[in-house]
């Protein structure tokens, strides 16, 4: 097969540095899954974070529009029937949405049985962290999800782990860069459709193209004032 090569687009040219402040923190929605009231919610809202709480979720797609998910361990994920409850939920979210920033909010860090599933979390925070610490960690999370490069690298790592040929990953990356530059998700969506991938890889790319990418682009537009 002959492929026409041209100078590749530079991924880092679309890097976005996000300086979080009271006025731009609301650009990205944060979902809290906790069967008990999330006590830091009110003060975090005052800091400008756009937080929504749910006692539990019915299916994994319920988190699709939230780039950041904070999840309790005990008493959530009941619909999924795992004894690992919230830890299992996080692992399932990570499988379907590798680009999300996942935070475990736990009151019990002594038990080892959740450790494997909790590798899916970006950070484990105990339930008694101060509001200042919450702000610090959520600002870090916002910086990650606001940056298209960070989001893509998580997808890219997953594809490489799934043995997707490097050239296919490269082609998808080029389409992603073009989509971000043109602020047009369809550029990537079309590339995702024509690339030959395994079922698992196809699902990851398809979900990212359909659910996350439009929000990444919207986030870039919404966050532009604070960048």
């Amino acid at each position: 097969m002959i492929k026409l090569l041209r100078t590749p687009l530079d991924l880092y040219a679309i890097r976005r540095v996000f300086h979080a402040n009271d006025s731009n923190r609301g650009s990205f929605e944060i979902l809290v899954i906790d069967d008990e009231p999330f006590t830091p919610e009110a003060p975090l809202r005052k800091h400008g974070f756009n937080i929504q709480s749910q006692e539990d979720i019915e299916n994994i797609d319920a988190v699709a529009k939230f780039p950041i998910v904070i999840c309790d361990i005990v008493g959530v994920g009941k619909k999924f029937g795992s004894s690992n409850e919230g830890a299992h939920l996080l692992a399932e979210i990570r499988k379907r949405f590798p680009d999300k920033y996942l935070i475990t909010n736990t009151g019990a860090g002594t038990t080892t049985r959740h450790n494997k599933d909790l590798r899916s979390a970006d950070i484990v925070l105990s339930k008694d962290v101060s509001i200042d610490d919450w702000v610090l960690h959520l600002d870090t999370a916002l910086a990650q999800v606001a940056d298209p490069v960070s989001r893509w690298k998580r997808i890219r790592d997953r594809l490489l782990l799934a043995d997707v040929p490097v050239f296919s990953v490269f082609e998808l990356e080029q389409a992603f860069i073009r989509a971000i530059k043109k602020k047009d998700p369809s550029t990537f969506q079309k590339a995702a459709e024509r690339t030959v991938l395994s079922d698992a890889a196809k699902e990851v790319v398809g979900v990212f193209a359909e659910k996350a990418l439009p929000l990444v682009i919207t986030g870039l537009l919404g966050a532009s004032a604070g960048t």
Binding site: E36, T39, P40, A42, P43, V74, T106, G107, A108, G109, T110, T111, S126, K127, D128, V129, S130, I131
Partner: peptide, 21 residues
Amino acid sequence: LLNLMHDLRRLGGLLQTNVHE
């Protein structure tokens, strides 16, 4: 012990939030 630590941490979080507010 696990339940106790969970409750203590939850109360700690409540204290932190209330002091902040």
